[in-house]
Amino acid sequence: MPKWAMVIDLDKCTGCGDCMAACKVENNVAIVSPEQAEENRVMFWMDMMTIYEGEYPNIKVTRIPKPCYHCDNPPCIKVCPVHATYINPEGLVGQIYHRCIGCRYCMAACPYTAKVFNWYEPEWADEFKTCMNPDVSLRMKGVVEKCSFCAHRLQHVKEDADAEDRPINDGEYMPACAESCPADAIFFGDLENKESKVYKLSRSPRAFKELEDLGTEPKVIYLSKRE
């Protein structure tokens, strides 16, 4: 069984934010009204963290793109009362929008603040509704959502591979963010496959995971020379 994982090379990432935009477009993530945005209700499945260190003028800035870490031991799914967030055998942590009762317990339990909530019914101008990605179902008010590792793409890739009766190649299943990153800083693949790029990178001495001591076992691995 593959175990899908993402590696983000912070030494290459410039913090350009394209992953955030690509993700929003690919996954039909709603754009909240400006007033809502002001109230901290924007929805980014891929968010951006900024860290400033040092004393002026020797300031170091690190920008860290932050999707859902698809923890192998996810605290978020443990608390869900209705099985609306789950981990599948391939390690993807998913959300079932139609079952979620909107208690937001999973959000409170996620140590990485990876989830967002539909405070209102998502709205689009009629024109924009035309160009929704049909592979990704739209959400409704009152449910939680988050980065899915673009699971719908895996579905497509599997069909292709099945049709041709072959295993999925390394790099064939690529989430939108990884695909568009101008710095090629995002890698994606199967950790169980020792030949895969992510497997190799995950063993790099630069590799680290956020809050590793929590035992959540994130499957998003960062690479960085500075700690």
Partner: peptide, 10 residues
């Protein structure tokens, strides 16, 4: 309207 009418957020 949804929970948006509360003051909760992310």
């Amino acid at each position: 309207y949804g929970l948006g009418v509360t003051g909760m957020n992310q």
